[in-house]
Structures are given as structure tokens and as C-alpha cells.
Computed example of a mutant assay.
Amino acid sequence: MSTKPSPYQALPFSDRCRQVWGLGDHLLIGVSPGNSYFSARRIAELIDWGREFFDAVDVVYADLHVDAQFEAFGHTPEHAGRRAAKEIKTTARRIERGVEQAGPARVGVHALSEFLVEPVYQRLRAEVEAALREDQVFREAAEGMARSFLAGRLPAGVAAEAGQLAAGLRYICAELPFFLDTPALLGRASSISCHHIELPLTPVLFGRCEGLRAAPAQGYAVVRPAQAAGVAEAPGVAEASETLAA
């Protein structure tokens, strides 16, 4: 076990996710446009940190349905398209700088739109759409995730309108294939998708025995700065990190 303090702490969602982590095959870092958490420095740190535990690291950023969100908040289609293109371009440049800062080891960088023609992505996306129609537990969690996502664009205490919620759901559904089966999408034996918070859909995709859920080789972990996590505020995080660093 390394004695060097880790800049990040990891908490796999379940025992199965911890087992997938222990395989050390692949880490997926998902980046959303407009999310200030993912600075170039943060991306570089996450890549460096991920290389300690995984054979490969990939970054995927969302570039689908961003314009629909701006339209749902009252922008004309033309203005929404320009705003979305600017946000996506800024995100891509930030990732590029982060990868450069992380050093010479190869890191895969992908836009979601690259996968639209892939049969695996199309199948997984169809499964997500079917679950939205047929699985109430999944739909409620997805709507909760969309509301959380949209809250940053709304005044405090204001709930999303129906059109805004629908736009948020389309955006989230485009990302969900990578929470379901990244190994199939990227040709890896197993994979951990990471985020700095537990998402409302995490217990649904990784914690239940029925309905739409992640593939056996797909795991999920909350990964956040060690100084921000704090053992007192987040019991079990430090303990889990020690296990993972072994």
C-alpha cells in the first residue's frame, strides 16, 4: 500500500462495484458542459489519480441535447444552438488542456455524439427509453436526476417546467448508456464510471435486482477530493479508500 496521501477518495457504491474496481481495468470520467467542477486542473488530477488504480482511463463529454436545454429556457433555436456550441467547445478545450497537463500516457477522449451510429449505444439507448415508459422507479429517479441537473439553471426555489424537465431527461438519457455498459461501448473487460456525488439513479442502476440495471462488469464510484470528503462528514470513505489503494 502506498503511503503517499491520495488527493482523492473513492467510495464504490456496492460490494460488486468494489469488486469491479479491484479488477483495475478501466476508469471512465464523464464531463458535462457548463459544470465548473471539471476544471482543466481537476481533469488532470483525476487522470493522474486514476492511473494509479486502472490500466486505462477515458474521458467522455456530453455534446448531445445541450441546445434543447437552452431552448427550454426561452432561447430561440438559433441562439440556443450558438450557446450550446460555445459551451461544448469550451468543455472540449478544457479536457484537452487537462489531458496535456496529465502527462504523456494515452487517455481516450470521446464526445457522446461519436457513439450515435454504434449498434451497442443504440441498443442501450433504446433500453433507457423503454425503461422511461415502463419502469416507474426508473422514471422517478431519472426525473429526480434531471431536476437536480436543472436546478443550477433555475432561480432558488423555482421548479422546472414540463418542457424543461423533458429537455433535461433527453440530455441525461444520452449519457446513461455509459452508466449501463461502458465495457461494451469501449471494448473493455470491466469499467468504473465515477462522479463526485451519488446520483439519484445510482441505487436504481446498481442496487436493485429487477428492471433496467448496469451490466455485471460495470461499476460506479463516488470520487471526490480527499480534503472535501472528510471522514467525519462521510463515514466509510477513508476506510474504502484504504481498501482500494491496497
Rank of each mutant, 00 (worst) to 15 (best):
A174R: 01
F138V: 01
A72W: 07
E78I: 01
E100I: 04
L112Y: 07
A184G: 08
A126G: 07
G152P: 02
T182L: 11
L154C: 10
R153Q: 10
P77M: 10
A131M: 06
D181P: 02
A215F: 03
G163F: 04
R147H: 12
A141K: 05
D135N: 10
S191I: 00
S148A: 12
C173F: 11
F70N: 07
A126C: 07
T76F: 08
V204P: 06
D67Y: 07
I88G: 03
I88V: 15
A146M: 06
G74R: 02
E71D: 07
R139V: 03
G152W: 05
R125L: 13
P155H: 06
A189V: 04
R97S: 11
A156W: 05
G103S: 03
A126N: 02
G103W: 08
P203N: 08
I197Q: 13
L212A: 09
A80H: 07
L176Q: 11
I172C: 06
V204H: 05
R97H: 13
A68M: 05
L205V: 06
A146V: 00
Q69L: 10
Q69E: 15
P183T: 03
A111C: 11
V109S: 12
L132Q: 13
P183L: 03
G211D: 12
A92N: 01
R139D: 15
E129T: 07
A80Y: 06
D67S: 14
G163S: 08
L176W: 12
A162V: 04
S113K: 05
M145H: 11
A141D: 10
R82H: 12
G187F: 06
V99T: 06
C194S: 14
L185T: 01
R125Y: 11
G211Q: 03
T202E: 12
T182M: 09
A105H: 14
E127F: 04
A111F: 07
C194Q: 13
R208D: 11
F138A: 04
V158L: 12
T76S: 15
G211I: 05
V117M: 09
A142H: 09
L176R: 03
A72E: 00
